Amino acid sequence: MKNKTDFFNPMILVVGMLAFLAMGYIGSFNYRFEDPLKLEVILTIIFACIVFAIGVLLVKYKTNVEGKEITFLSEKLILALTIIALILQALNLVLLGGIPLFNSTLKANATTNIWRIAYPLFLIMLNLLLAKYYNRKYLALIIIGALIFGLNGYRTSVLGILGSSFITLYYLEKISRKFAILFIAAIVIGLMAVGYIASQSIAGQHWTLNPLELIFYRAAFTLEVFEKIIPLAGTTNGHILSMIFSSGSPRTFIGEYVLHYTVCLTSTLFGPVMLDFGYIGLTIQMLFMGMFLELVHKLKKGIGVGIYSIILTHTIIWIETGPTDIMIWFLYLIGLIYILIILYKNQDN
């Protein structure tokens, strides 16, 4: 890269974790709690950051491999699959009978099987298309995708599309300072708009917070959930992990187990594994994520840039939501397959 500083190396996750902690701490004073977050929450998150950084450094300085080009994916095929994904999401909205962003009842049912195919397909193909066959006309697909998937009412879809494509373009050196400012502004405005509009459409709730205040509130609330999880560490004995890879709703289970009423909760990157396996599980998870992200980062070349961008972006999203989506673990599986292919190509040479 010509850029002197690699702003999107895996250590950006540490920045994200500490920033989220700071936002939640501020929010705990202003919008949610009479008392600020407990010291144990702060120290646990700092510990997780340290373990993650150790994982990154182990791979960075102890492995000697390089990325290779993968040539078997054609531009026409990737483009066709990208468009098919957009059509599937449009069909999903038609079958839902409305726009979930403006209707909380529809939003609760918006993550259909069609969406579970359409979103990862679009996300993967878009970034592979940009990484391997960059053309300025493909930038329109970013905006179209963010809009059509944003109608589902979930901020994570908007962030996943805009964030991953931004990182891909960054590594392709297609981003000027002016473009970067505009793109980041679009991400921030898009997230705030989707989150605020969706909150206003929830039946029976009346929010007085503005879009910026809502972000700090959400961070504080999510960290409050994690605060309540810490005394329960290790008590679910792997049940959440088994739900992720089978059936059921891990976030709803966490809501029932921690708060004792039926609600779908985000519990931070650390919450689910802490409930299941305690501090030992947290240590293993953060060490694995640090090593895995750094290995994909180190091997990224060609389509590898797109794969790394997708995985990094959704791991950053997990800082709030928690790693409870099998669909996103599927992206990790793609990353693992990519790693194995590149390692095989390195041995072959």
Rank of each mutant, 00 (worst) to 15 (best):
residue 72 F to V: 11
residue 160 G to L: 06
residue 278 G to S: 08
residue 198 A to K: 10
residue 97 G to D: 07
residue 164 S to F: 10
residue 243 M to F: 01
residue 15 V to H: 09
residue 261 Y to D: 01
residue 95 L to K: 15
residue 9 N to G: 11
residue 214 L to Y: 11
residue 36 P to C: 03
residue 24 G to H: 08
residue 224 E to D: 06
residue 28 S to A: 15
residue 318 W to M: 13
residue 164 S to H: 09
residue 62 K to Q: 10
residue 5 T to V: 15
residue 58 L to E: 01
residue 234 G to E: 05
residue 126 L to E: 10
residue 3 N to I: 09
residue 12 I to V: 15
residue 82 T to L: 03
residue 176 S to E: 03
residue 330 F to L: 13
residue 207 W to P: 00
residue 222 T to L: 05
residue 228 K to R: 15
residue 196 Y to M: 07
residue 256 E to T: 13
residue 246 S to P: 01
residue 285 Q to D: 03
residue 72 F to P: 00
residue 310 I to C: 10
residue 317 I to G: 02
residue 71 T to S: 12
residue 27 G to L: 10
residue 134 Y to Q: 08
residue 280 I to F: 13
residue 190 G to D: 04
residue 253 F to M: 09
residue 207 W to D: 04
residue 348 D to V: 15
residue 326 I to R: 07
residue 266 T to M: 09
residue 182 L to T: 06
residue 251 R to A: 11
residue 299 L to E: 06
residue 233 A to H: 02
residue 304 G to W: 00
residue 245 F to V: 08
residue 103 N to R: 12
residue 21 L to P: 00
residue 102 F to E: 02
residue 51 V to I: 15
residue 306 G to Q: 10
residue 336 L to Q: 08
residue 310 I to D: 03
residue 254 I to E: 06
residue 14 V to A: 13
residue 259 L to A: 13
residue 168 T to M: 03
residue 248 G to W: 13
residue 336 L to A: 14
residue 56 V to Y: 12
residue 129 L to M: 07
residue 275 L to I: 13
residue 140 A to V: 14
residue 304 G to F: 02
residue 61 Y to L: 11
residue 137 K to H: 11
residue 308 Y to M: 02
residue 37 L to N: 04
residue 171 Y to G: 00
residue 24 G to A: 10
residue 153 G to H: 10
residue 183 F to L: 07
residue 254 I to H: 01
residue 307 I to W: 08
residue 153 G to T: 10
residue 87 I to T: 08
residue 295 L to A: 07
residue 198 A to P: 01
residue 83 I to A: 01
residue 252 T to P: 00
residue 136 R to K: 15
residue 192 M to A: 14
residue 78 I to M: 05
residue 68 K to H: 11
residue 168 T to P: 02
residue 109 N to D: 06
residue 64 N to P: 00
residue 207 W to Y: 12
